[in-house]
Each structure stands twice: as C-alpha cells, then as structure tokens.
Design a protein around this nucleic acid. Sequence first.
DNA 1: TAAATTAACGTATCAATTACATTTATTATA
DNA 2: TATAATAAATGTAATTGATACGTTAATTTA
Lengths: 234, 234
Amino acid sequence: MKITEKDYYIQEDKMYVATDCVIFGFDEGNLKLLIFKRRVKPLMGTWSLIGSFVRLQEDVSEAAERVLKEITGLENVFMEELKTYGTANRDPGYRCISIAQYALIRIGEYDKELVERHGAHWYDIDDVPNLVLEHNQMVEDALARIRRKARYKPIGFELLPQKFTIPQLQRLYEAVYQKKLDARNFRKKVLSLNVLIKLDEKDKSTSRRGAFLYKFDKSKYKKLQESGFNFEIS
Amino acid sequence: MKITEKDYYIQEDKMYVATDCVIFGFDEGNLKLLIFKRRVKPLMGTWSLIGSFVRLQEDVSEAAERVLKEITGLENVFMEELKTYGTANRDPGYRCISIAQYALIRIGEYDKELVERHGAHWYDIDDVPNLVLEHNQMVEDALARIRRKARYKPIGFELLPQKFTIPQLQRLYEAVYQKKLDARNFRKKVLSLNVLIKLDEKDKSTSRRGAFLYKFDKSKYKKLQESGFNFEIS
DNA sequence: TAAATTAACGTATCAATTACATTTATTATA
DNA sequence: TATAATAAATGTAATTGATACGTTAATTTA
C-alpha cells in the first residue's frame, strides 16, 4: 500500500521530521523559486516550499528527492542540504523539525504538466510571497549559501541549459550577486578556469551577431570542484 | 520530573532525532577531539561523539548545548551545525537521524572534574579511535568544514586562550592545515586583518626572548565576519 | 659575557585583479 | 545593396596582493 501524507495521523508525543526544498531556477536573467501550497494541516493551503515528511523507512535525502520528483518530474538534479530548522515551537500543533535542502535546476527541463497539476508556481526571487512558518528565512539562507558557494564552485552550470553562452552565464552571476559585472573580466576569468568547450554553434536569440555556445567539460569540472578553486568576482 | 536518557523507551515506529557534537580543542600544537562512551543501547559503551537525543520540548541547538554543558561545564561556546546524518538504517534497532554539530572550545577552560566523571577523553586528532556508527565520518566532515571555514573566518580565536601570541596562532593554523607556514608571511597577513590588539605583556614559555601577547578586537572582528573577508594562506 | 633560542622584521619578484574603449559579425530595413 | 542597429568579442596598462627568502633583536642560562 502506498503511503501518502494523508495517512500520517499526528500524535502530540511524537517527533516529526520533514524536509523542505528551496528550488532555484534561472530564466531570462532572473533567479526564480518554485513553491506550492502546503498539503498538511495546520495552515494547509498557504504558500510553502516544496516539502514532505520524512518517512520512517527512507533516508532524509530520499525524501527530498521523492518530493522533488513528484512535483517537477526531475531526478538527479543538484541538491544539497542547507541546514536544520529545529526550534521546538516552529510548527504549531506538533513537534516537527525540518531539514532544508536547496536544489538548482534547469528551468527548461521540468515537467510543466506535473507542476501545474500540483499547483506549484515559479516566482521571481524578488517577488516571493509570504511563505508558511520560517520558509522565507530558508530562502534567504539558501541565497546566502549559493552566493558564498559561487565563490569556489561554478554553480552556474547546474542552472543553465546544457548549451549556453558566456553572456548568459554572466547574467546568471549578475542575478545571484545582484550586481553588474564587467564583461571583459568576466569572460577572461571564466575562460581561465579551462572548463568550457566552445561549440561551433551560435545562439542568435539576443543579438544580430550571435554569441557562441559553450558546453562544459565534465571531467575537468569535476577535478576543479575537488581542488577547491577560487572564483571570486568583483 | 527530570527526564534522562534512560527514560526514553524505544518504539520501533517512531522517528528519533539525536544530535552529536564534534568538539575540537587545541593544545600544545595539536588539534584535539573530545569523545565519551555511548550511553544508550545498542552499542552502549562504545567510543562516541558527545551526543544526546533531542527532547520533544527543546530546540535541536538547545539539546547540543545541554549535552556540551553536561560533559564539559561550558556554555556560550562557538557551536555550529555541521549537517544531518539521515540514512534510514544508520542506527541499528530503531530509526534515528542525527544532526551533527561542531564546537570549538578553549581547552584550558573546561571543567576537568566533570569531564573525568563522565569518562570523556581528549584524543589527538590523528589518534582518534574507532567511533560508533558513522561518527568517524562526522569528524572527517567537521575537519573539512573548519579547513574551508578558516579561509574566510578567523576560526583561531575560538580555540586559543583569550591572550595568545602570533606564533601560537600560527601553530594552530599549521595543525588545522597540516602544513608548515612561513612565519613572516603569516604574521603579515594576520596583522593586516586589523583585528589584533597588541598587549604590553609577553609569553616567555616558549622562548628566552618571549613573544608579545595579543587579544583580539571583538567589534572589528564582528565586522570582518560580516563582510566575509578572504584569509587564504599558503 | 658568551651561547642559545625563538621573535620580529622588510623587500624584491611574481601572479592576479581591476579598470577601461574599440572593433566585429550579423540582421533588418531604407 | 548600402546603412543602421545591436550585442559579442577582444587587449593592455596599472594596481594590488601573494610569495619567497635571510638577518637582527631580546632575553635567559650557563
């Protein structure tokens, strides 16, 4: 028998463990967040990060992957633990801690039909409505995390399509850091990392001239990740 | 009535939440770890990080602070969440996730009598015995974390006594990074951060000449933390 | 007063970051 | 078919920060 959220019946003397996922996408120069309506009482129907209780027989990370797949159809996306929200009184009615995760997904690849069916929506990161419990704080914390992380890991690659242009990558970094970057220095820095492969194709959607598409070299990228490089940009 | 660990009786259909703390100290040039003997079944008596179940009515962070105080007598020490260890089968017999923390303490300040009474011991970080469950992994992960963190936060200050010398601080960084550093460049870099206050006292325990003691400027330090500086050392 | 010991200091070289302006490829339209 | 419009692509000089390296200074003990 498949267990669904509705099968949980809340006992006051139990500790519940949930996971909530801050799902980031990037589209048209803007960083976006996917949210849906809370499926459990109390506060059912309020805007909420995409989350679920962790079942007794599954790993915490599996719970996060399960719910991400359920809502977006996506598997094997970049997802990492953010931190635990564990104050005693955070969820009214029963004791529940939440282990927040954040995911970076390619916004072109999710299952639109599924997302719609679950009433989930993408919001510009600057227009996120009030969320249930401390979920807005989770979003803040996740943003701070990716800002820091972008300094030593090339986060861009999880959020962009497989083929992308350097100006596109720059706009992503500009969205993350909320500031304009110098195109010449940005290009120089990115290329100096030596993880991009220039393709013989151009993307002409944003200019007459067109910008060359790049993909990135997964094996070099992995090595770079392990060695912990420095990608500070001003 | 005070609840103790013994009062928990384990039910198979419950989710348990524990917290385990990787407690680092620094003494005589060596990074050290505090561990004790596990107090719950199964595997009671095995070497273990210092931890406890999280009680229904307390925050996760409070549980960590409670157990740290119980064993060392210390309060208000630097403690931060490491990450959650949440696989379904990690603890034999029942479902329990653990939210690991790490703490940096001044090794001169803990309550020796208390530590002894609880059968806790300091081990050199290179001589840590086999620990219960995946606790050795937690130690590895915590070490990796402080190594990374030391690049943008001056972790030294949590581990050294209030008054310390620059060579002492250097030995701490050498212990964390497991490599020799250049004394001139280290001093230059540390002083350039502008968070040290030179005192009119010397520590003569390690040389005839004696080294000047420093304390550090808490308000400048705080500002520095917020701005997220760069403290890479080669 | 000589010997021993660690602390303290400065500089020149190299590498990385920053600031900044022009030309190029292409398409649409006059 | 020539021209206008647009974003992409490129280079260099100046500045800043990181690295490598050897000598002198302060103090205690013998």
